[in-house]
Computed example of a mutant assay.
Amino acid sequence: MYDSFAVIALRRISLGLLDALYNVVLNAGVMIWDVGLTLINVVLPSRPAGRVVPAGAKGAGGVWPAYEAPAPSDSRCSCPALNALANHGILPHSGRDITFRELNAAVRASYNFAPSFCFFVPNYIAGVLGRSYWTGKFDLSDIDVHNGIEHDASLARVDSFHSNDQGKVCATLVQDLLSSGTGAGGNLTTHDLSRALGRRRTHARNNNPQYSCSLFHKLFGSSNSATLLRIFGGSTKDLQPILLEERLPDGWQPSERHQMGLTLTAFQPTVLSIELGIKEEVDGSLSGQGTEKAKVQ
């Protein structure tokens, strides 16, 4: 009997080591691929501003499929960009039974992230959920496992301690963010996002008794903010419907115009610039905000 237990234990250890080795090799391969795409972007001309979404794809020329707000039975998550794809029917409108490969293709075509980026993130989500990237499916709400990729101190959502539905927009937080732009026309800048995240983290820490924000989740928060600049150009005019209604404006096209899309390599300087510029404030007050629960749509 003890021999059998030993064999089972050794088998599990072996499988764990093989999985770990597989992930190391896979991630190394993705990084090499990503660097190669970054170099290709240096030499190839950028896509025309009005034709970033490829011809034949939904949203080509800025003509997006009709927007339909989610029904109560539809699944939504903490990511406005993914919810927008579902609201426009680019992902299933129900937000359910989505394959990770389907997610890859939709994000690639709609937002012009690089293929390496579009594989890496869904593959990571699949790992968090314990599913296969190649064969697995998920509902949008599944990805909001707390402290998986969903995290405290979001700029568009109240903390999960205050709400168990991370698919709901917090209008107060979004409006506070959009009103903080100091760039041309009131657009958001790197400094604005650092400042907003600093306030938000302090406020969350002071008002959420279960607050946690590891270095990984801080960087993930800065990555989300960097997307507002790199894909949406920091435009508060465009971000208003995107963040509040989770709707892509007519005529909108990604700001990222490189042929191979936004790579992980090219993305990191923006992420680090935002994160390194964060200074958490003493009281973390947010203009116009009462409690965390206020104005959740």
Rank of each mutant, 00 (worst) to 15 (best):
V63L: 13
F138L: 14
P269Q: 08
N23H: 12
Q166T: 06
I274D: 04
E256Y: 02
S222K: 03
K168P: 00
C77H: 08
N23Q: 13
L188I: 04
Q240F: 08
G288D: 12
L91R: 03
S179G: 13
S110W: 04
H151G: 09
N27M: 04
A84K: 05
I90N: 08
H162W: 15
A20N: 06
G251K: 12
N83G: 11
N224G: 15
S194A: 13
A184S: 12
V174I: 10
Q240T: 15
S4F: 13
V296Y: 08
V53E: 02
C79V: 12
V43Y: 04
E246T: 10
A55P: 00
G181L: 03
V128P: 03
R108E: 09
D97G: 12
E280G: 08
P122E: 11
R201N: 01
L262Q: 14
G59L: 03
K58R: 13
H88S: 08
G290I: 05
G186T: 02
C213T: 05
M1I: 03
L244V: 08
M31F: 08
L286K: 11
H162C: 09
A204T: 14
E246C: 10
L85Y: 05
H217P: 10
S225E: 15
H146P: 12
P72M: 12
P65F: 08
N112Y: 01
Q268K: 12
Y111L: 14
S116V: 02
D152E: 10
A109Y: 08
G62D: 08
H203Q: 11
A204C: 13
S116C: 07
A153K: 01
R257Y: 01
E281K: 10
L248R: 01
V145K: 14
P122F: 05
D165G: 01
I231T: 15
V30A: 01
A294I: 12
G251Q: 11
D34W: 00
N27F: 08
A105G: 01
N147P: 00
L140C: 06
V169K: 03
E245D: 15
F113G: 10
P48M: 07
Q297S: 14
K279A: 14
A49S: 13
E102A: 13
S179K: 09
L264D: 06
D19R: 14
P80C: 06
G221L: 13
R200T: 14
G234K: 03
S14G: 03
G221R: 14
G284K: 04
R108L: 12
N23R: 14
G136T: 01
F5S: 10
T182Q: 06
A55S: 12
V24S: 00
T172M: 06
A156N: 12
V42L: 11
A126C: 05
A153G: 05
L21H: 07
R257A: 09
A226L: 02
T189Q: 06
S285E: 11
G234S: 02
R157E: 06
Q166I: 00
G183A: 02
